[in-house]
């Protein structure tokens, strides 16, 4: 579903991502772990077609992101860590805007908005302007908009930050359902317990370079993911 091959992205002289290769198959929930500034957001933004990169290739469902950005974007959803949405729109106007851009049929979008907004308990607030939403409500609205066009690949940057426990639980369920239907999820997180319980596979990145990746069992063995992460970080510092 997502093939990142030898991805390199530099900002000036600094290599934010250095020769990163990762393959994410349909049905997989793939966690992306690393310290602050390790290159997680840059990788996710490159996959979403937001950031142009210097070398390598990114393919989404076989589509080259650089060569066919529009086709690639049609099958993915990207949810950033800080959902800066359009404050001048109401929640429902925002969802309709996203549905229009992705060409979601009228009847289909109405049913999906109803179902997703009810699940996140946001229905009553949909007529409110987004400027009146709390951070968590914006996060929920961004989640609904991400699922609205039923993308094949969902890219999420720290999706659990700001969500209340109920919404976080619902999100985990939705992630599983999405992957059960053949979709894939690639997300970054600092919450290692969540990654340990939720992910099929995990990749650890440091200073733009991949330290390790694989199934959860391959990466952590009998230890906890937290212990493995800290150990790997230290060993690469030495």
């Amino acid at each position: 579903m997502l093939q990142i091959t030898h991805l390199t992205k530099t900002y000036g002289d600094k290599k934010a991502v250095d020769d990163l290769t990762l393959h994410i198959a349909p049905g997989e929930i793939y966690g992306f772990i690393g310290h602050n500034g390790a290159g997680k957001t840059t990788t996710l933004k490159s996959c979403a077609g937001i950031l142009p990169f210097d070398a390598g290739e990114i393919r989404i469902n076989g589509i080259d992101v650089s060569a066919n950005p529009l086709e690639a974007k049609r099958v993915l959803a990207y949810l950033p860590d800080n959902p800066d949405l359009y404050n001048f729109l109401s929640g429902i106007q925002y969802l309709n805007f996203i549905a229009d851009i992705f060409g979601v049929e009228k009847s289909v979008r109405a049913e999906r908005i109803r179902r997703l907004a009810d699940s996140f308990e946001l229905t009553a607030d949909l007529a409110q302007p987004i400027s009146a939403y709390s951070h968590g409500m914006k996060q929920k609205l961004a989640m609904i908009s991400g699922w609205l066009h039923e993308p094949k690949l969902i890219l999420m940057d720290e999706p659990f930050v700001g969500l209340d426990p109920k919404a976080a639980h619902l999100l985990k369920e939705m992630m599983h359902e999405h992957c059960d239907r053949g979709g894939a999820i690639f997300f970054s997180t600092h919450v290692l317990e969540v990654a340990e319980k939720l992910c099929d596979k995990v990749a650890i990145i440091k200073e733009g370079r991949l330290i390790t990746s694989g199934t959860m069992e391959e990466v952590k063995g009998d230890a906890s993911l937290e212990d493995v992460f800290l150990e790997l970080e230290e060993s690469h510092e030495a």
């Binding site: 359009y86 001048f88 929640g91 805007f97 229009d100 851009i101 009228k106 979008r109 229905t123 007529a127």
Partner: peptide, 29 residues
């Protein structure tokens, strides 16, 4: 607070949706 009442909406093309978004931004500022 304005209570949300579900209404039928027009599905429009991406170009039209972008234009609507621009006009809403203009009117709101």
């Amino acid at each position: 607070k304005v209570k949300y009442v579900e209404k039928a909406v027009d599905a429009v093309s991406p170009d039209r949706a972008l234009l609507r978004r621009e006009l809403k931004h203009f009117a709101a500022c």
